[in-house]
């Protein structure tokens, strides 16, 4: 079982790249520990900016740094980054088109028992609705690393969401196919297409395995690039299947499910079922308990497909 959370994979890439690239700057808001970025802060104190518990300041300072040639990565819990500093993300990053990478850590319901103040089940919807903001939810540590490397190569704003806990590997060190802004088709299938992002990709792959044993073929698409959404990949997977199921750690509105539904309705109409968190504060528990309760796991995805085929 993998013990490296995606946030740590981010730190490892940034530390490696910062050896050569002195313009990489990491910013934290009393969040370096929870972001796994303390090693970066210790190793590169001159490329690290601590702003204290001030997420609005965090994002605006990052934008100012970017405007003057730096490559800032601002990391804070996704719940605060995507709400408290939403306007800074909209105006200073997206609207002014600054090269800021926002890293939302402990995203979704990672902080299970801490209550709704600490959940970010609205971040995909919020961030995606901003013109010029890109939104990424990588599925495992290998993909996370490739994504950070790719983001270092362009100069546009982006929001990344990762969870707190290590997630089981979807890919391997040797085999992690990655093309920027192109979804990864993990398996193909003609009965159903499962389109998932972030921590739901692992369970989607397992669900496809469960279904295969019962003679049902499900395609699995890892839509880590929620925005810009890979429409071609959706049309390809959905077009081959009778049913589309989306799975995401997000509110039922405005997330991956809504976006996939829009594409399928227009391009290749067929039934789409969205698996997501409820439109309510989620039940108290660890993220595993919460996922299980709402059927956001391999069994839940497989069951949904069987019920709807």
């Amino acid at each position: 079982m993998n013990k490296i959370p995606n946030r740590q994979a981010i730190c490892e890439v940034l530390m490696e790249k910062a050896k050569e690239d002195k313009d990489i700057v990491v910013l934290c808001s009393d969040s370096r520990g929870s972001a796994s970025l303390a090693p970066f802060a210790n190793e590169y104190p001159k490329q690290f900016v601590e702003v204290g518990i001030a997420e609005q300041n965090l994002v605006s300072i990052a934008a100012g740094l970017a405007k003057c040639g730096k490559k800032p990565f601002a990391a804070s819990p996704a719940c605060f980054l995507s709400t408290r500093s939403y306007e800074q993300a909209k105006v200073d990053c997206a609207y002014s088109n600054t090269n800021v990478t926002l890293i939302g850590i402990s995203g979704g319901i990672s902080y299970g028992a801490l209550g709704m103040s600490h959940h970010s089940a609205q971040d995909i919807a919020a961030m995606s609705a901003i013109p010029n903001m890109r939104v990424y939810l990588p599925s495992d540590r290998f993909q996370t690393a490739k994504l950070i490397e790719a983001l270092l190569k362009d100069e546009k704003p982006a929001y990344i969401r990762v969870g707190r806990n290590p997630v089981e590997d979807v890919y391997t060190e040797e085999s992690c196919p990655f093309e920027m802004d192109k979804a990864t088709a993990i398996t193909e299938g003609t009965d159903a297409a499962i389109i998932a992002c972030g921590e739901m990709v692992g369970p989607a792959v397992k669900a496809a395995e469960l279904l295969k044993a019962e003679g049902i073929n499900a395609a699995v698409v890892d839509m880590y690039c929620v925005k810009p959404l890979d429409k071609e990949a959706i049309v390809k997977a959905a077009g081959n299947a009778r049913l589309v199921v989306t799975a995401e750690e997000h509110a039922p509105f405005g997330g991956l499910g809504s976006m996939v539904s829009q594409v399928v309705a227009r391009e290749c109409p067929r039934k789409v079922v969205n698996l997501a968190l409820p439109d309510a504060p989620v039940i108290t528990g660890t993220s595993r308990e919460v996922f299980d309760y709402y059927g956001l796991n391999a069994d839940g995805i497989a069951k949904t497909i069987k019920e709807n085929l």
């Binding site: 902080y111 028992a113 801490l114 209550g115 039940i283 108290t284």
Partner: peptide
């Protein structure tokens, strides 16, 4: 705990 009203905030 799971389902508890006594959450962390």
């Amino acid at each position: 705990k799971f389902g508890s009203k006594f959450i962390g905030h």
